[in-house]
Design a protein around this nucleic acid. Sequence first.
DNA 1: CCTAAACTGTACGATCTATTACCGTACCTT
DNA 2: AAGGTACGGTAATAGATCGTACAGTTTAGG
Lengths: 202, 202
Amino acid sequence: MNQPRQIEKRKAIINAASEMFLEAGYAGVSVDGIIAQIGGSKRTLYKYFGDKDGLFAAIVEQMCSEIVTPLTHLDLKRLSLREALSTIAHTFLEVLLSPRTIALHRLIIAEALRAPASARTFFNAAPATSYRCLTEYFIWADGAGLVTPGDAHARAILFLDSLTGQLQLRSLLGHENPAPVEQERLIDEAIAVFTKGIAPTE
Amino acid sequence: MNQPRQIEKRKAIINAASEMFLEAGYAGVSVDGIIAQIGGSKRTLYKYFGDKDGLFAAIVEQMCSEIVTPLTHLDLKRLSLREALSTIAHTFLEVLLSPRTIALHRLIIAEALRAPASARTFFNAAPATSYRCLTEYFIWADGAGLVTPGDAHARAILFLDSLTGQLQLRSLLGHENPAPVEQERLIDEAIAVFTKGIAPTE
DNA sequence: CCTAAACTGTACGATCTATTACCGTACCTT
DNA sequence: AAGGTACGGTAATAGATCGTACAGTTTAGG
């Protein structure tokens, strides 16, 4: 078998098509356009992916598998609660507001009704993993006595969403990102409210 | 002039097209389809709206002007902080998770890059108004000594987003809404964290 | 009742799209 | 080196879409 050749071609198609879909949306990209970009024949594209929807699904799966990794390698247990929340806030905001993540987000939302399987893949890969990661930290912090007992999962959702909600929406709508100083003010206020709000009762 | 006739027709087009766009997205609706739905001639549609993009812009403007009203009629100043936050939480969640709002949200996000003017209209009408409304309350609560001084606007963003973020995303992705009891748990935890987090220092 | 404007219905042209077909060429295995 | 397989390039099929044109009909007002 000549797998390497096939794999290379497959990757080339996925890479090029990913960028195009992220930029122009599902309906804004034509199969002819993809082929014009990377050369080759439409026949092989259809051989690998069946049809345009199959290509879309493959691309979503590929991008979702790439997006998770940087979030699971945080070493938070040596930090104070304040420092840990600050680290989490900065790390997540950087990933979630990156142009690529925003574009993927927008693409998935746009096609959610037409491609529900991809929407589910995305949700399980990206936000659910983030919540889980932070939930684990809150559970640990609870055990370590850093916070007052409470619903760790709910707290993870609240903290993450409070930071990302508005900034993410603005990016999804194509607005300019706000000045970093404004982001910092939001992060500071969030950490202030949360550290006080879940502080252990003495 | 026979304005009533023109106005009626215009409204009929906007109403029918709104539903169709919300359901199927911009690319999923054809002008022929709209006309097939309501009868009449494409000619008049093009006379009123210029082209498909013009129709889209008119629809967004119309829906945005409708969506704001229910949020500005809350009388919060007689309530305790906890009760006020609970009222806000329930009111906003109901509006923001309604199928119509979600569909509009999804539509705007999907077309944000192609129709930035509509995206801006939407942002100013819906989320910005919500934030402003809640910001005013926090400013008042600060003046009334119910909370410790702080950035009212940031707090408004944090509180609202912490509640809506995950639930809204799940709806945008077409998932079933979670059980009401789960929503309540999230609201309860949010109110617990916030009331404690912004309580006045004694 | 009559005129002028607005509306309807259908048909049309041009363009774009997904998908399949054909055939010659490059490549890998044996 | 031979033969089968995957690839490239072009073209054809079939259908949908936007926007316009034209001829007939309804409506509003004097």
